[in-house]
Amino acid sequence: MARRTNELTIEELSVVNTTKVVKEIDFKTALSLFVDDCEIRNLRPQTIQYYKNELSVFYKILKEQDIILSMDTIAKDHIKRNVILYMKEKGLQTVSINTRLRAIRAFFNFLHREKYIKDNPLNDIKLLKDRRKVVETFTKEQLQKLFNQPNLRSFVGVRDYTFMLLLLETGVRVSELQGVCVQDILWNESKLHIRNTKTYKERLVPIQLKMKNQLQKYIQIRGVMETDSLFVTLDGEPMSKRQFQNRVTYYGKQADMNSVRCSCHTFRHTFAKLSVKNGAGIFELQQILGHTSMEMVRVYVNLFSDDVMDKHKTFSPLINLNFRM
């Protein structure tokens, strides 16, 4: 075998200078690398599970169309035609498509950033435009119906009555409620310490005398247990997010409330509505609700503030017109 020359050819130099590190990375390997990166960045378990679920469905969508490609050969057209249009044809709602696209984008952004793929197929692909729906909230009459449902002669009834009151009093997310422990109630300060937050930023939420009194009654009935979780099952286990949601749904059905979605998150929206109507400002709402941006808080203020309604009485175009009515 002849001795090779030491100087590299133009073709060999192009191999050295290429930015592509891994060739033909398959989905399973890519997903494993992405999940490892999520773990390193200390993302919430719920967020990591969301990525796993949505990306598994993404790969399933491609397989259903007999598209079995390595991640570095998936192109923008695959995303447009074989993912977005495919989901639309299957009748998925815009919000569901956008939820999946966010996960796919995070996945390919990671692969491109770490140079596992040369081109990012999600570049210039935007989320689908969606109509912003009116935020659903409970009316005072509906709240009365809901709170009339729990059987206050039972442990489950007192527990459910208490956690629904706490949802209404604080506007916390159900995932945050799930993480509340007995010692998180700061009795002397009249505050609730929210630790298990979506943003990883712990916060203190005020609670008033009525809420403190109800919590004291519930804790007395709850008794001493091995778990520190505030809300527990009959078996003494911490309640799950699904169990909180199922109880609210159950009481909604019991109250025959079909005109509004009976969910823990509807309590959050209702807290925002009633707080705005009672004079809460945008910064107080942001702090209590734990929003990182003002966008959703502004939506609440714009939707529920009586200021616009009151001022419209003075600037309505019909005021000085003499049309026959």
Rank of each mutant, 00 (worst) to 15 (best):
F271W: 11
K273P: 10
K311M: 13
T249K: 15
D306A: 02
H193N: 09
K277L: 13
F304Y: 14
D307P: 02
T292R: 14
E189I: 02
V205N: 04
R203Q: 07
K277T: 08
M239L: 15
C264H: 12
F304N: 07
N196E: 07
V232D: 02
N322K: 10
F267V: 03
D310E: 11
G279R: 05
L209I: 05
V224K: 09
G236P: 03
V224W: 03
L321I: 07
I185S: 04
L303N: 13
T314H: 11
M296H: 00
K212Q: 08
S263G: 11
V248R: 00
L285I: 01
K311T: 07
N278C: 08
H312F: 11
M257L: 15
D235Q: 13
Y200M: 02
N258P: 03
I288F: 11
M211I: 07
K217M: 08
S316L: 08
Q220D: 02
P317H: 06
Y218N: 05
K277I: 07
F271Y: 15
Y200W: 02
F271K: 11
I221A: 06
G236L: 04
D306T: 06
M296K: 00
T292N: 15
L234H: 09
T233I: 05
V297R: 00
G281N: 15
K201P: 03
T233G: 07
M296E: 09
D306C: 01
D235C: 05
K313G: 11
K201H: 10
V297A: 01
R242F: 09
S190K: 10
L289S: 07
I221T: 02
K210D: 08
N278I: 04
D256N: 15
Y200A: 08
D256G: 13
Y218W: 04
I221R: 12
D306Q: 07
N302F: 05
S305H: 07
R247P: 04
Q208Y: 10
S229I: 00
S259A: 12
F315W: 03
Q243V: 05
W187I: 09
H269T: 10
K253D: 14
P317T: 02
F304I: 03
A280F: 12
S316C: 12
V224E: 07
M211F: 01
V276K: 12
V224Y: 03
I221N: 06
E202Q: 09
L186I: 03
N246Y: 08
L215V: 00
M294F: 13
R242T: 07
L318V: 11
Q254T: 01
Y251L: 12
L303E: 14
Y200C: 03
R298G: 05
I207L: 00
L321Q: 12
I185Y: 00
V232F: 10
Y218P: 06
N258R: 13
L289M: 14
L186Q: 06
T227L: 08
E295V: 14
Q214E: 09
T314P: 06
T233N: 12
T270V: 07
V308R: 15
L186T: 00
K210T: 01
Y200P: 00
M225L: 10
L318T: 09
K201T: 04
C262V: 09
K198C: 05
L289P: 11
V232G: 00
I282N: 14
L274D: 12
V182E: 01
K313M: 13
F315Y: 13
A255Q: 13
N196V: 00
Q287L: 02
R298P: 04
L186P: 03
R222A: 06
K198R: 03
G236Y: 05
R195V: 05
V276S: 14
Q183T: 03
T266S: 11
E226C: 01
